[in-house]
Design a binder for these strands. Sequence first.
DNA 1: TAATAATGGTTTCAATTGTAACTAAATAGC
DNA 2: GCTATTTAGTTACAATTGAAACCATTATTA
Lengths: 163, 163
Amino acid sequence: MTRRLATDDLLHLEHFLPYRLSVLANIVSATIASAYAARHDLTTPEWRVMAVLAREPGLSAAQVAERTAMDKVAVSRAVARLLRHRRVTRRAATADRRRSRLRLTPAGMAVYIEVSPAALDYEQELLKVLSSAESRTLDAVLHRLLGRARELAADRIIRATNH
Amino acid sequence: MTRRLATDDLLHLEHFLPYRLSVLANIVSATIASAYAARHDLTTPEWRVMAVLAREPGLSAAQVAERTAMDKVAVSRAVARLLRHRRVTRRAATADRRRSRLRLTPAGMAVYIEVSPAALDYEQELLKVLSSAESRTLDAVLHRLLGRARELAADRIIRATNH
DNA sequence: TAATAATGGTTTCAATTGTAACTAAATAGC
DNA sequence: GCTATTTAGTTACAATTGAAACCATTATTA
């Protein structure tokens, strides 16, 4: 008994995981950005660069790119703005003079120390609607989904490259 | 016994939920887009508009915006492209001539019917790394997080407006 | 050790996106 | 019924982003 192809068999946007992830991530990022963007004249890429440099001073731009999942152009632009605002310093690495060593200035650290708790508060407010078991599951699930998403993305790239 | 403020107390990007959501959503969206963008000359906004029109023919642009979480400008641009490619039709609503009624053409439906299973396959591939219990939890958790994120975003807007 | 390739990072140019201003039609107030 | 508002959607302009070309330095290799 074959059925006609019905729209029910096809994709329903509201239930489609990629769409839901995208909407959630956008609203969350926009809300957080609205908290620091105006007050500190800080973009999301800058904020990410600062966050990794706070924990690992002396990283190069490429290392920052790795840790923030940004591309090198985005890092370059964020760093340029941070330099102009005297929030980071840059000097050439002694061994390899192509490579830079980036650090937060005290002023940069001060901004980070002020913004960071607000961001963490927001995260806590968001997680209030989950039980601690759900939070743990979410943590594990996101970790595994990200790994899987990277695998699938790599697959595609190989296929696309070999076209 | 008070401790000095350490970077451990501050935000660690890799563990920060908003950051992780953003990275995951981006890689997932980019992978899916790479599947249909080149093959069908279709952008993500167009794809979303098509997906809702497939299920609910005759929606207005504003209704499409609601259901896709896009703003009206993005919908307008996506619809303009879809009209040019003869993938949707538009006529004015009889009652209110400002309002449009949008429908997929057979050609538009054909594209949707071709792309849709590939997108659903991708979703299944992604979810393979989760148990069915985890999938169900994720579903519920995303639903609640989205509701909460909307509340928090609304809060901010009110505060921002009353500055 | 000269020539070539690879790497780190920046710049340029085009495409995408966001914000505000706008047009057209409908509704509300008087 | 005439003006003021609101709503639906588009357009214009600025800011952001992405892809490719680019410069400088280091590594490779013949």
